[in-house]
């Protein structure tokens, strides 16, 4: 028996008798998505779409590296994806497209909530797209008045531009995802970030 044969004959999830360190008594309240994942497993089992044993088999099939790197419910959801593909109940492309849609929907919701919270006071700014396609905020009220004012015969120097209109570029990453799923998107904001 070669060393690699031992790796194959032992499932990555089988632990009985292996050397191990002290038991840390950790526990955590399940996150909402983890609860939904557990409920999904039960519902898939009722329908015999993915029975419990198939789920276990699917987690084992992820292999040692992924089993070690992923947390408990992360392993489950990836196993479900793989099994659903194999059963031709969905395709990888369908899932990828749907994941993008879900991520975008959440990004927009989070972004909207941040803006709504941080706006705090009446905002003179509106979202606009520059001709080069970059998104930034452009003031419509005061700056326009100032521009037209500056063009007027009264002259620009009569009134200095208020400090709060000073061009400032601020970036907020669009998403907080650190898993590498989406890149943070830089947004140029001319908004007072108080």
């Amino acid at each position: 028996m070669t060393a690699s044969g031992n790796l194959i004959q032992r499932l990555p999830t089988e632990m009985g008798g292996l050397p191990a360190g002290p038991i840390e008594r950790v526990e955590h309240e399940l996150k909402p998505w983890e609860k939904r994942c557990h409920a999904l497993a039960d519902v898939l089992d009722y329908h015999r779409i993915i029975n419990t044993e198939e789920k276990r088999c699917g987690v084992e099939a992820l292999g040692r590296e992924i089993v070690s790197a992923l947390s408990y419910y992360e392993r489950w959801i990836v196993a479900f994806a793989n099994i659903l593909f194999r059963k031709q109940l969905m395709t990888p492309e369908e899932l990828a497209v749907k994941m993008d849609e879900v991520a975008a929907r959440h990004s927009q919701e989070t972004y909207n909530a941040i803006c709504k919270h941080k706006a705090g006071r009446r905002s003179f700014f509106r979202r606009a797209e520059a001709r080069d396609g970059s998104r930034h905020y452009r003031s419509h009220g005061p700056i326009r008045r100032l521009r037209s004012f500056s063009r007027s015969r009264v002259g620009f120097n009569r009134r200095a531009a208020p400090r709060w209109l000073a061009h400032r570029r601020t970036s907020i990453p669009r998403t907080g995802v650190v898993d590498g799923y989406s890149q943070p998107i830089q947004i140029d904001l001319r908004i007072d970030q108080r």
């Binding site: 996150k31 998505w33 939904r36 994942c37 999904l40 992923l70 419910y73 992360e74 959801i77 990836v78 479900f80 994806a81 659903l84 969905m90 899932l95 749907k98 994941m99 849609e101 879900v102 991520a103 959440h106 990004s107 989070t110 998403t175 907080g176 995802v177 650190v178 898993d179 590498g180 799923y181």
Partner: peptide
């Protein structure tokens, strides 16, 4: 913002 696996769960 939901993480990668939470997005996967919602999508599935």
């Amino acid at each position: 913002a939901p993480g990668y696996y939470a997005i996967m769960e919602t999508a599935i």
